[in-house]
Design a protein around this nucleic acid. Structure first.
Lengths: 256, 256
DNA sequence: TTTGTATAACTAGTATACAAGATAATTTAC
DNA sequence: GTAAATTATCTTGTATACTAGTTATACAAA
Protein backbone atom coordinates (compact mmCIF):
# COMPACT_ATOMS: atom_id res chain seq x y z
CA UNK A 1 0.00 0.00 0.00
CA UNK A 2 2.93 2.30 0.62
CA UNK A 3 3.69 4.83 -2.05
CA UNK A 4 6.85 6.88 -2.08
CA UNK A 5 6.06 10.57 -2.02
CA UNK A 6 8.38 12.61 -4.20
CA UNK A 7 7.73 16.29 -4.69
CA UNK A 8 4.52 17.68 -3.33
CA UNK A 9 2.14 19.35 -5.75
CA UNK A 10 -0.71 17.71 -3.85
CA UNK A 11 -3.60 20.02 -3.44
CA UNK A 12 -6.79 18.01 -3.35
CA UNK A 13 -8.26 17.24 0.04
CA UNK A 14 -9.77 13.82 0.56
CA UNK A 15 -12.42 14.09 3.20
CA UNK A 16 -15.50 12.64 1.56
CA UNK A 17 -17.15 9.32 1.55
CA UNK A 18 -14.49 6.65 1.09
CA UNK A 19 -16.80 4.69 -1.22
CA UNK A 20 -17.25 1.05 -0.35
CA UNK A 21 -14.07 -0.83 -1.22
CA UNK A 22 -14.26 -3.71 -3.65
CA UNK A 23 -17.27 -2.10 -5.18
CA UNK A 24 -17.95 -4.12 -8.29
CA UNK A 25 -17.90 -2.73 -11.83
CA UNK A 26 -21.16 -1.00 -11.14
CA UNK A 27 -24.43 -1.99 -12.66
CA UNK A 28 -25.43 -0.19 -15.81
CA UNK A 29 -23.71 1.84 -18.48
CA UNK A 30 -20.47 1.22 -20.33
CA UNK A 31 -21.11 -2.34 -21.37
CA UNK A 32 -17.67 -2.98 -22.74
CA UNK A 33 -14.71 -1.09 -21.29
CA UNK A 34 -12.67 -1.04 -24.47
CA UNK A 35 -15.19 0.53 -26.78
CA UNK A 36 -14.29 2.87 -29.60
CA UNK A 37 -15.85 5.97 -28.08
CA UNK A 38 -12.64 7.64 -27.04
CA UNK A 39 -10.78 9.71 -29.58
CA UNK A 40 -7.54 8.08 -28.53
CA UNK A 41 -9.03 4.77 -29.64
CA UNK A 42 -9.88 6.15 -33.06
CA UNK A 43 -6.40 7.53 -33.55
CA UNK A 44 -4.90 4.25 -32.36
CA UNK A 45 -6.87 2.12 -34.79
CA UNK A 46 -6.15 4.51 -37.63
CA UNK A 47 -2.42 4.64 -37.06
CA UNK A 48 -2.23 0.92 -36.45
CA UNK A 49 -4.02 0.16 -39.71
CA UNK A 50 -1.79 2.52 -41.63
CA UNK A 51 1.30 0.93 -40.15
CA UNK A 52 0.02 -2.53 -41.00
CA UNK A 53 -0.85 -1.36 -44.53
CA UNK A 54 2.66 -0.05 -44.89
CA UNK A 55 1.05 3.25 -45.72
CA UNK A 56 3.26 4.41 -42.91
CA UNK A 57 6.45 2.62 -43.74
CA UNK A 58 9.05 1.49 -41.20
CA UNK A 59 11.25 4.38 -40.13
CA UNK A 60 8.68 7.08 -40.79
CA UNK A 61 8.76 9.76 -38.08
CA UNK A 62 5.55 10.27 -36.14
CA UNK A 63 5.40 13.63 -34.39
CA UNK A 64 2.62 13.94 -31.85
CA UNK A 65 2.05 17.56 -32.80
CA UNK A 66 1.63 16.80 -36.49
CA UNK A 67 -0.82 13.99 -35.87
CA UNK A 68 -2.77 16.05 -33.37
CA UNK A 69 -3.11 18.84 -35.93
CA UNK A 70 -4.13 16.41 -38.64
CA UNK A 71 -6.96 15.03 -36.51
CA UNK A 72 -7.92 18.33 -34.98
CA UNK A 73 -7.24 16.96 -31.52
CA UNK A 74 -4.85 17.83 -28.73
CA UNK A 75 -1.68 15.89 -28.10
CA UNK A 76 -3.20 13.96 -25.20
CA UNK A 77 -5.33 11.39 -27.06
CA UNK A 78 -2.70 11.15 -29.81
CA UNK A 79 -0.08 10.43 -27.23
CA UNK A 80 -2.17 7.70 -25.66
CA UNK A 81 -2.55 6.09 -29.05
CA UNK A 82 1.18 6.23 -29.69
CA UNK A 83 1.94 4.74 -26.29
CA UNK A 84 -0.29 1.79 -27.13
CA UNK A 85 1.52 1.32 -30.42
CA UNK A 86 4.84 1.52 -28.61
CA UNK A 87 3.73 -1.24 -26.28
CA UNK A 88 2.89 -3.41 -29.26
CA UNK A 89 6.30 -2.60 -30.70
CA UNK A 90 4.81 -1.02 -33.79
CA UNK A 91 6.54 2.29 -33.06
CA UNK A 92 9.73 3.22 -31.26
CA UNK A 93 9.67 6.20 -28.92
CA UNK A 94 12.97 7.93 -28.30
CA UNK A 95 12.40 10.21 -25.32
CA UNK A 96 12.68 13.91 -26.03
CA UNK A 97 13.89 13.03 -29.49
CA UNK A 98 11.33 11.44 -31.73
CA UNK A 99 8.93 8.63 -32.48
CA UNK A 100 9.25 6.40 -35.52
CA UNK A 101 7.37 3.56 -37.11
CA UNK A 102 9.29 0.50 -35.95
CA UNK A 103 11.30 -1.54 -38.37
CA UNK A 104 10.34 -5.19 -38.69
CA UNK A 105 12.60 -7.15 -36.37
CA UNK A 106 13.73 -10.21 -38.28
CA UNK A 107 14.61 -12.44 -35.34
CA UNK A 108 11.44 -11.67 -33.42
CA UNK A 109 9.55 -12.37 -36.62
CA UNK A 110 11.00 -15.83 -36.77
CA UNK A 111 9.98 -16.49 -33.18
CA UNK A 112 6.54 -15.03 -33.76
CA UNK A 113 5.92 -17.54 -36.52
CA UNK A 114 7.05 -20.41 -34.31
CA UNK A 115 4.77 -19.24 -31.53
CA UNK A 116 1.83 -18.87 -33.84
CA UNK A 117 2.27 -22.38 -35.14
CA UNK A 118 2.37 -23.74 -31.60
CA UNK A 119 -0.84 -21.96 -30.65
CA UNK A 120 -2.71 -22.82 -33.82
CA UNK A 121 -1.69 -26.42 -33.39
CA UNK A 122 -3.44 -26.52 -30.03
CA UNK A 123 -6.55 -24.96 -31.51
CA UNK A 124 -6.74 -27.31 -34.47
CA UNK A 125 -6.24 -30.35 -32.31
CA UNK A 126 -8.92 -29.37 -29.87
CA UNK A 127 -11.30 -28.27 -32.60
CA UNK A 128 -10.92 -31.63 -34.31
CA UNK A 129 -11.95 -33.38 -31.15
CA UNK A 130 -14.77 -31.22 -29.96
CA UNK A 131 -16.07 -29.02 -32.77
CA UNK A 132 -19.84 -29.12 -33.05
CA UNK A 133 -21.54 -29.65 -36.39
CA UNK A 134 -22.61 -26.01 -36.45
CA UNK A 135 -18.99 -24.95 -36.18
CA UNK A 136 -17.94 -27.30 -38.92
CA UNK A 137 -20.67 -25.87 -41.13
CA UNK A 138 -19.45 -22.37 -40.31
CA UNK A 139 -15.92 -23.28 -41.30
CA UNK A 140 -17.09 -24.89 -44.53
CA UNK A 141 -19.00 -21.73 -45.33
CA UNK A 142 -15.90 -19.63 -44.76
CA UNK A 143 -13.83 -21.79 -47.08
CA UNK A 144 -16.51 -21.54 -49.74
CA UNK A 145 -16.52 -17.78 -49.33
CA UNK A 146 -12.76 -17.79 -49.74
CA UNK A 147 -13.11 -19.62 -53.04
CA UNK A 148 -15.63 -17.08 -54.27
CA UNK A 149 -13.46 -14.16 -53.24
CA UNK A 150 -10.40 -15.74 -54.80
CA UNK A 151 -12.38 -16.08 -58.02
CA UNK A 152 -13.48 -12.47 -57.80
CA UNK A 153 -9.94 -11.38 -56.98
CA UNK A 154 -11.03 -9.41 -53.92
CA UNK A 155 -7.80 -9.54 -51.93
CA UNK A 156 -8.98 -7.41 -49.02
CA UNK A 157 -12.12 -9.41 -48.33
CA UNK A 158 -10.20 -12.60 -48.87
CA UNK A 159 -7.77 -11.56 -46.22
CA UNK A 160 -10.63 -11.04 -43.79
CA UNK A 161 -12.09 -14.44 -44.62
CA UNK A 162 -8.65 -15.95 -44.12
CA UNK A 163 -8.57 -14.52 -40.63
CA UNK A 164 -12.11 -15.65 -39.98
CA UNK A 165 -11.11 -19.21 -40.79
CA UNK A 166 -8.31 -19.27 -38.27
CA UNK A 167 -10.43 -17.47 -35.69
CA UNK A 168 -13.21 -19.95 -36.33
CA UNK A 169 -10.99 -22.89 -35.64
CA UNK A 170 -9.88 -21.35 -32.36
CA UNK A 171 -13.48 -20.70 -31.41
CA UNK A 172 -14.53 -24.20 -32.43
CA UNK A 173 -11.85 -25.57 -30.15
CA UNK A 174 -13.16 -23.45 -27.30
CA UNK A 175 -10.14 -21.15 -27.27
CA UNK A 176 -11.28 -17.66 -28.24
CA UNK A 177 -8.70 -16.19 -25.90
CA UNK A 178 -5.91 -17.99 -27.67
CA UNK A 179 -7.09 -16.43 -30.90
CA UNK A 180 -6.69 -13.04 -29.23
CA UNK A 181 -3.10 -13.95 -28.48
CA UNK A 182 -2.55 -15.08 -32.05
CA UNK A 183 -3.90 -11.76 -33.27
CA UNK A 184 -1.33 -9.92 -31.19
CA UNK A 185 1.39 -12.04 -32.69
CA UNK A 186 -0.07 -11.39 -36.11
CA UNK A 187 0.54 -7.66 -35.59
CA UNK A 188 4.22 -8.38 -35.93
CA UNK A 189 3.95 -10.78 -38.85
CA UNK A 190 1.36 -8.94 -40.87
CA UNK A 191 3.62 -6.26 -42.32
CA UNK A 192 6.05 -8.88 -43.45
CA UNK A 193 3.23 -10.86 -45.04
CA UNK A 194 2.04 -7.81 -46.92
CA UNK A 195 5.47 -7.30 -48.38
CA UNK A 196 5.92 -10.87 -49.52
CA UNK A 197 2.48 -12.00 -50.53
CA UNK A 198 1.45 -10.19 -53.70
CA UNK A 199 1.97 -13.44 -55.49
CA UNK A 200 -0.31 -14.64 -58.27
CA UNK A 201 -2.72 -17.43 -57.51
CA UNK A 202 -1.94 -17.26 -53.83
CA UNK A 203 -5.55 -16.90 -52.78
CA UNK A 204 -6.69 -20.12 -54.42
CA UNK A 205 -3.77 -21.93 -52.87
CA UNK A 206 -4.67 -20.68 -49.41
CA UNK A 207 -8.28 -21.72 -49.86
CA UNK A 208 -7.13 -25.19 -50.91
CA UNK A 209 -4.94 -25.50 -47.86
CA UNK A 210 -7.73 -24.40 -45.58
CA UNK A 211 -10.02 -26.95 -47.18
CA UNK A 212 -7.44 -29.65 -46.63
CA UNK A 213 -7.18 -28.80 -42.93
CA UNK A 214 -10.94 -28.83 -42.61
CA UNK A 215 -11.21 -32.20 -44.38
CA UNK A 216 -8.85 -33.81 -41.91
CA UNK A 217 -10.77 -32.22 -39.03
CA UNK A 218 -14.05 -33.58 -40.30
CA UNK A 219 -12.56 -37.04 -40.50
CA UNK A 220 -11.44 -36.68 -36.91
CA UNK A 221 -7.81 -37.02 -37.91
CA UNK A 222 -6.20 -34.50 -35.59
CA UNK A 223 -2.61 -35.35 -36.44
CA UNK A 224 -3.18 -34.83 -40.16
CA UNK A 225 -5.13 -31.65 -39.53
CA UNK A 226 -2.30 -30.30 -37.42
CA UNK A 227 0.30 -31.31 -39.98
CA UNK A 228 -1.62 -29.59 -42.75
CA UNK A 229 -2.07 -26.45 -40.69
CA UNK A 230 1.63 -26.41 -39.95
CA UNK A 231 2.53 -26.79 -43.58
CA UNK A 232 0.05 -24.02 -44.36
CA UNK A 233 1.66 -21.68 -41.84
CA UNK A 234 5.12 -22.66 -43.02
CA UNK A 235 4.42 -20.70 -46.15
CA UNK A 236 5.17 -17.65 -44.03
CA UNK A 237 8.69 -18.89 -43.48
CA UNK A 238 11.23 -16.28 -44.17
CA UNK A 239 14.12 -15.92 -46.47
CA UNK A 240 16.28 -13.41 -44.74
CA UNK A 241 18.85 -13.09 -47.47
CA UNK A 242 16.30 -12.02 -50.04
CA UNK A 243 14.47 -9.38 -48.08
CA UNK A 244 17.59 -7.94 -46.57
CA UNK A 245 18.50 -6.74 -50.04
CA UNK A 246 15.03 -6.02 -51.35
CA UNK A 247 13.93 -3.64 -48.60
CA UNK A 248 17.01 -2.97 -46.50
CA UNK A 249 15.36 -0.07 -44.67
CA UNK A 250 12.25 -1.97 -43.64
CA UNK A 251 13.89 -4.61 -41.53
CA UNK A 252 15.98 -4.70 -38.42
CA UNK A 253 18.64 -7.36 -38.19
CA UNK A 254 20.50 -8.51 -35.14
CA UNK A 255 23.87 -7.43 -36.40
CA UNK A 256 22.80 -3.84 -36.77
CA UNK B 1 -1.76 9.35 -45.26
CA UNK B 2 -5.17 10.97 -45.12
CA UNK B 3 -6.46 11.94 -41.72
CA UNK B 4 -10.03 13.01 -41.10
CA UNK B 5 -10.11 16.52 -39.64
CA UNK B 6 -12.72 16.94 -36.94
CA UNK B 7 -12.86 20.13 -34.96
CA UNK B 8 -10.13 22.67 -35.49
CA UNK B 9 -8.08 23.75 -32.50
CA UNK B 10 -5.05 23.63 -34.75
CA UNK B 11 -2.75 26.47 -34.06
CA UNK B 12 0.77 25.43 -34.76
CA UNK B 13 2.19 26.40 -38.11
CA UNK B 14 4.41 23.90 -39.81
CA UNK B 15 6.81 25.76 -42.03
CA UNK B 16 10.18 24.50 -40.93
CA UNK B 17 12.51 21.87 -42.13
CA UNK B 18 10.52 18.75 -42.88
CA UNK B 19 13.31 16.60 -41.46
CA UNK B 20 14.49 13.85 -43.74
CA UNK B 21 11.85 11.12 -43.84
CA UNK B 22 12.79 7.62 -42.75
CA UNK B 23 15.45 9.11 -40.60
CA UNK B 24 16.69 6.23 -38.49
CA UNK B 25 16.46 6.05 -34.70
CA UNK B 26 19.30 8.50 -34.48
CA UNK B 27 22.71 7.69 -33.26
CA UNK B 28 23.43 8.25 -29.62
CA UNK B 29 21.45 8.61 -26.43
CA UNK B 30 18.49 6.66 -25.15
CA UNK B 31 19.88 3.20 -25.60
CA UNK B 32 16.70 1.37 -24.83
CA UNK B 33 13.37 3.05 -25.55
CA UNK B 34 11.50 1.39 -22.72
CA UNK B 35 13.73 2.43 -19.87
CA UNK B 36 12.51 3.21 -16.39
CA UNK B 37 13.31 6.91 -16.49
CA UNK B 38 9.78 8.10 -16.95
CA UNK B 39 7.62 8.55 -13.88
CA UNK B 40 4.79 6.79 -15.65
CA UNK B 41 7.01 3.73 -15.88
CA UNK B 42 7.70 3.80 -12.16
CA UNK B 43 4.02 4.08 -11.32
CA UNK B 44 3.22 1.31 -13.79
CA UNK B 45 5.70 -1.14 -12.31
CA UNK B 46 4.62 -0.28 -8.80
CA UNK B 47 0.93 -0.74 -9.42
CA UNK B 48 1.51 -3.87 -11.47
CA UNK B 49 3.55 -5.45 -8.71
CA UNK B 50 0.97 -4.57 -6.10
CA UNK B 51 -1.78 -6.08 -8.23
CA UNK B 52 0.24 -9.24 -8.77
CA UNK B 53 1.00 -9.39 -5.02
CA UNK B 54 -2.69 -9.14 -4.35
CA UNK B 55 -1.77 -6.16 -2.18
CA UNK B 56 -4.30 -4.47 -4.41
CA UNK B 57 -7.01 -7.09 -4.49
CA UNK B 58 -9.40 -7.66 -7.38
CA UNK B 59 -12.21 -5.13 -7.33
CA UNK B 60 -10.25 -2.42 -5.54
CA UNK B 61 -11.01 1.03 -6.97
CA UNK B 62 -8.07 2.93 -8.42
CA UNK B 63 -8.73 6.67 -8.70
CA UNK B 64 -6.21 8.54 -10.78
CA UNK B 65 -6.37 11.51 -8.43
CA UNK B 66 -5.65 9.46 -5.35
CA UNK B 67 -2.69 7.73 -6.90
CA UNK B 68 -1.33 10.99 -8.27
CA UNK B 69 -1.48 12.51 -4.81
CA UNK B 70 0.17 9.51 -3.25
CA UNK B 71 3.10 9.73 -5.62
CA UNK B 72 3.27 13.49 -5.68
CA UNK B 73 2.71 13.49 -9.43
CA UNK B 74 0.09 14.83 -11.73
CA UNK B 75 -2.61 12.67 -13.24
CA UNK B 76 -0.85 12.43 -16.60
CA UNK B 77 1.85 9.86 -15.80
CA UNK B 78 -0.51 8.00 -13.50
CA UNK B 79 -3.05 7.79 -16.26
CA UNK B 80 -0.48 6.43 -18.68
CA UNK B 81 0.40 3.73 -16.19
CA UNK B 82 -3.25 2.81 -15.73
CA UNK B 83 -3.82 2.65 -19.47
CA UNK B 84 -0.98 0.18 -19.77
CA UNK B 85 -2.49 -1.93 -17.02
CA UNK B 86 -5.85 -1.76 -18.74
CA UNK B 87 -4.30 -3.06 -21.93
CA UNK B 88 -2.88 -5.99 -20.02
CA UNK B 89 -6.32 -6.59 -18.52
CA UNK B 90 -5.07 -6.06 -15.00
CA UNK B 91 -7.48 -3.20 -14.44
CA UNK B 92 -10.89 -2.33 -15.86
CA UNK B 93 -11.56 1.27 -16.81
CA UNK B 94 -15.19 2.35 -16.85
CA UNK B 95 -15.29 5.67 -18.68
CA UNK B 96 -16.31 8.65 -16.61
CA UNK B 97 -17.10 6.28 -13.80
CA UNK B 98 -14.16 4.54 -12.26
CA UNK B 99 -11.21 2.20 -12.56
CA UNK B 100 -10.91 -1.07 -10.67
CA UNK B 101 -8.39 -3.83 -10.26
CA UNK B 102 -9.67 -6.53 -12.59
CA UNK B 103 -11.07 -9.74 -11.27
CA UNK B 104 -9.36 -12.91 -12.38
CA UNK B 105 -11.26 -14.22 -15.40
CA UNK B 106 -11.63 -17.97 -14.92
CA UNK B 107 -12.13 -18.98 -18.52
CA UNK B 108 -9.30 -16.84 -19.84
CA UNK B 109 -7.16 -18.33 -17.10
CA UNK B 110 -7.81 -21.80 -18.40
CA UNK B 111 -6.83 -20.74 -21.92
CA UNK B 112 -3.78 -18.94 -20.64
CA UNK B 113 -2.51 -22.12 -19.07
CA UNK B 114 -3.09 -24.07 -22.28
CA UNK B 115 -1.24 -21.42 -24.27
CA UNK B 116 1.65 -21.36 -21.87
CA UNK B 117 2.04 -25.12 -22.08
CA UNK B 118 2.07 -24.96 -25.87
CA UNK B 119 4.77 -22.30 -25.90
CA UNK B 120 6.93 -23.90 -23.24
CA UNK B 121 6.70 -27.18 -25.11
CA UNK B 122 8.27 -25.57 -28.15
CA UNK B 123 11.04 -24.08 -26.03
CA UNK B 124 11.87 -27.30 -24.22
CA UNK B 125 11.95 -29.28 -27.42
CA UNK B 126 14.23 -26.85 -29.16
CA UNK B 127 16.44 -26.43 -26.14
CA UNK B 128 16.88 -30.18 -25.90
CA UNK B 129 18.12 -30.29 -29.45
CA UNK B 130 20.34 -27.27 -29.56
CA UNK B 131 21.25 -26.13 -26.05
CA UNK B 132 24.97 -25.49 -25.68
CA UNK B 133 26.89 -26.89 -22.75
CA UNK B 134 27.15 -23.45 -21.22
CA UNK B 135 23.38 -23.19 -21.20
CA UNK B 136 23.00 -26.60 -19.65
CA UNK B 137 25.45 -25.58 -16.94
CA UNK B 138 23.47 -22.40 -16.38
CA UNK B 139 20.26 -24.37 -15.98
CA UNK B 140 21.91 -26.82 -13.59
CA UNK B 141 23.12 -23.89 -11.52
CA UNK B 142 19.61 -22.47 -11.35
CA UNK B 143 18.17 -25.76 -10.17
CA UNK B 144 20.84 -25.99 -7.50
CA UNK B 145 20.03 -22.48 -6.40
CA UNK B 146 16.37 -23.46 -6.20
CA UNK B 147 17.26 -26.31 -3.87
CA UNK B 148 19.22 -23.96 -1.62
CA UNK B 149 16.42 -21.42 -1.53
CA UNK B 150 13.85 -24.12 -0.85
CA UNK B 151 15.99 -25.25 2.07
CA UNK B 152 16.28 -21.70 3.34
CA UNK B 153 12.56 -21.17 2.86
CA UNK B 154 13.06 -17.99 0.87
CA UNK B 155 9.85 -18.03 -1.16
CA UNK B 156 10.41 -14.74 -2.93
CA UNK B 157 13.88 -15.55 -4.22
CA UNK B 158 12.74 -19.04 -5.07
CA UNK B 159 10.00 -17.61 -7.20
CA UNK B 160 12.56 -15.56 -9.10
CA UNK B 161 14.76 -18.60 -9.62
CA UNK B 162 11.72 -20.52 -10.82
CA UNK B 163 11.17 -17.88 -13.46
CA UNK B 164 14.83 -17.86 -14.35
CA UNK B 165 14.67 -21.58 -15.04
CA UNK B 166 11.83 -21.25 -17.51
CA UNK B 167 13.39 -18.18 -19.08
CA UNK B 168 16.68 -20.03 -19.34
CA UNK B 169 15.10 -22.89 -21.24
CA UNK B 170 13.54 -20.47 -23.69
CA UNK B 171 16.87 -18.73 -24.15
CA UNK B 172 18.70 -22.02 -24.54
CA UNK B 173 16.27 -22.95 -27.29
CA UNK B 174 16.95 -19.66 -29.02
CA UNK B 175 13.51 -18.24 -28.27
CA UNK B 176 13.91 -15.26 -25.94
CA UNK B 177 10.98 -13.57 -27.65
CA UNK B 178 8.72 -16.48 -26.84
CA UNK B 179 9.68 -16.11 -23.22
CA UNK B 180 8.49 -12.51 -23.43
CA UNK B 181 5.15 -13.80 -24.64
CA UNK B 182 5.00 -16.32 -21.83
CA UNK B 183 5.67 -13.55 -19.35
CA UNK B 184 2.66 -11.64 -20.64
CA UNK B 185 0.55 -14.73 -20.22
CA UNK B 186 1.99 -15.16 -16.76
CA UNK B 187 0.57 -11.77 -15.78
CA UNK B 188 -2.84 -13.36 -15.95
CA UNK B 189 -1.94 -16.59 -14.18
CA UNK B 190 0.29 -15.18 -11.48
CA UNK B 191 -2.41 -13.86 -9.19
CA UNK B 192 -4.17 -17.17 -9.29
CA UNK B 193 -0.93 -18.95 -8.50
CA UNK B 194 -0.34 -16.71 -5.51
CA UNK B 195 -3.73 -17.59 -4.13
CA UNK B 196 -3.35 -21.32 -4.49
CA UNK B 197 0.30 -21.95 -3.84
CA UNK B 198 1.03 -21.35 -0.18
CA UNK B 199 1.34 -25.10 0.16
CA UNK B 200 3.95 -26.73 2.34
CA UNK B 201 6.88 -28.38 0.64
CA UNK B 202 5.91 -26.95 -2.70
CA UNK B 203 9.31 -25.42 -3.37
CA UNK B 204 11.19 -28.69 -3.07
CA UNK B 205 8.66 -30.35 -5.34
CA UNK B 206 9.10 -27.67 -7.99
CA UNK B 207 12.87 -27.98 -7.84
CA UNK B 208 12.55 -31.76 -8.28
CA UNK B 209 10.33 -31.32 -11.31
CA UNK B 210 12.72 -28.82 -12.84
CA UNK B 211 15.58 -31.22 -12.27
CA UNK B 212 13.62 -33.99 -13.97
CA UNK B 213 13.01 -31.85 -17.03
CA UNK B 214 16.68 -30.92 -17.16
CA UNK B 215 17.74 -34.56 -16.85
CA UNK B 216 15.69 -35.55 -19.86
CA UNK B 217 17.07 -32.60 -21.80
CA UNK B 218 20.63 -33.59 -21.02
CA UNK B 219 19.93 -37.09 -22.27
CA UNK B 220 18.60 -35.60 -25.47
CA UNK B 221 15.17 -37.10 -24.86
CA UNK B 222 12.95 -34.28 -26.06
CA UNK B 223 9.68 -36.15 -25.75
CA UNK B 224 10.30 -37.02 -22.12
CA UNK B 225 11.47 -33.51 -21.35
CA UNK B 226 8.32 -32.08 -22.89
CA UNK B 227 6.13 -34.56 -21.04
CA UNK B 228 7.77 -33.68 -17.74
CA UNK B 229 7.41 -29.97 -18.39
CA UNK B 230 3.75 -30.45 -19.21
CA UNK B 231 3.13 -32.41 -16.07
CA UNK B 232 4.98 -29.70 -14.14
CA UNK B 233 2.78 -26.98 -15.61
CA UNK B 234 -0.31 -29.07 -15.08
CA UNK B 235 0.08 -28.40 -11.40
CA UNK B 236 -1.41 -25.02 -12.18
CA UNK B 237 -4.60 -26.67 -13.35
CA UNK B 238 -7.62 -25.17 -11.80
CA UNK B 239 -10.41 -26.40 -9.67
CA UNK B 240 -13.14 -23.93 -10.36
CA UNK B 241 -15.62 -25.25 -7.85
CA UNK B 242 -13.23 -24.77 -4.96
CA UNK B 243 -12.10 -21.25 -5.62
CA UNK B 244 -15.51 -20.03 -6.57
CA UNK B 245 -16.49 -20.53 -2.97
CA UNK B 246 -13.20 -19.66 -1.32
CA UNK B 247 -12.75 -16.22 -2.86
CA UNK B 248 -15.99 -15.46 -4.66
CA UNK B 249 -15.08 -11.80 -5.11
CA UNK B 250 -11.69 -12.39 -6.66
CA UNK B 251 -12.83 -14.27 -9.73
CA UNK B 252 -14.99 -13.57 -12.69
CA UNK B 253 -17.01 -16.44 -14.07
CA UNK B 254 -18.73 -16.65 -17.41
CA UNK B 255 -22.18 -16.87 -15.98
CA UNK B 256 -21.87 -13.56 -14.18
C1' DT C 1 38.12 22.59 -45.13
C1' DT C 2 37.58 20.98 -40.74
C1' DT C 3 36.36 21.24 -36.02
C1' DG C 4 34.42 22.96 -32.00
C1' DT C 5 30.79 25.77 -29.89
C1' DA C 6 26.89 28.43 -29.14
C1' DT C 7 22.13 28.89 -30.27
C1' DA C 8 17.70 28.08 -32.04
C1' DA C 9 14.03 24.94 -32.84
C1' DC C 10 12.27 20.83 -32.34
C1' DT C 11 11.00 16.61 -29.38
C1' DA C 12 8.50 13.93 -25.67
C1' DG C 13 7.34 14.17 -20.47
C1' DT C 14 4.62 16.42 -17.13
C1' DA C 15 1.44 19.71 -14.78
C1' DT C 16 -2.82 21.95 -14.67
C1' DA C 17 -7.45 23.32 -16.09
C1' DC C 18 -11.64 22.28 -17.89
C1' DA C 19 -15.47 19.34 -20.01
C1' DA C 20 -18.75 15.74 -19.89
C1' DG C 21 -20.69 11.77 -18.13
C1' DA C 22 -21.95 8.70 -13.99
C1' DT C 23 -22.96 7.91 -9.26
C1' DA C 24 -24.51 9.07 -4.74
C1' DA C 25 -26.88 12.07 -1.78
C1' DT C 26 -30.64 15.10 -1.16
C1' DT C 27 -34.88 17.03 -1.88
C1' DT C 28 -39.46 17.03 -3.47
C1' DA C 29 -44.00 15.10 -4.69
C1' DC C 30 -47.37 12.00 -3.46
C1' DG D 1 -42.88 6.10 4.15
C1' DT D 2 -41.89 5.53 -0.87
C1' DA D 3 -40.44 6.87 -5.19
C1' DA D 4 -39.23 10.06 -8.54
C1' DA D 5 -36.63 14.18 -9.56
C1' DT D 6 -32.89 17.19 -8.53
C1' DT D 7 -28.45 18.50 -7.18
C1' DA D 8 -23.77 17.85 -5.64
C1' DT D 9 -19.69 15.59 -6.30
C1' DC D 10 -17.42 12.11 -7.78
C1' DT D 11 -15.09 9.91 -12.09
C1' DT D 12 -12.36 9.72 -16.55
C1' DG D 13 -11.46 12.21 -21.23
C1' DT D 14 -9.40 16.11 -23.37
C1' DA D 15 -7.12 20.68 -24.07
C1' DT D 16 -3.44 23.65 -23.08
C1' DA D 17 0.80 25.31 -21.03
C1' DC D 18 5.17 24.51 -19.47
C1' DT D 19 9.68 21.81 -18.62
C1' DA D 20 13.59 19.55 -19.93
C1' DG D 21 16.32 17.09 -23.09
C1' DT D 22 18.06 16.37 -28.11
C1' DT D 23 19.23 17.53 -32.68
C1' DA D 24 20.15 20.55 -36.30
C1' DT D 25 22.01 24.84 -37.79
C1' DA D 26 24.93 28.81 -37.94
C1' DC D 27 29.01 30.57 -36.94
C1' DA D 28 33.68 31.10 -35.22
C1' DA D 29 38.35 29.44 -34.74
C1' DA D 30 42.07 26.62 -36.30
Amino acid sequence: MAAPPKKSPSKRAKTRKPRAPNSPPRSSAAKVPGQARRNSEIVYRDLRDQIMNLTLSPGTPLAENDIADRYGLSRTPVREAILRLAEERLVDVFPKSGTFVARIPMTELREAIVARKALEEVCVREATVKASESWRAELRAIVQRERDLAEAGDAQSFHEADNAFHAGIAAAGGYPGIWTMIEKIRLQVERYRRLTLPQEGRMNLVADEHAAVLDAMEQGDADTAVARMNSHLNKLQIDIGTFRHLWPDYFLFDDQ
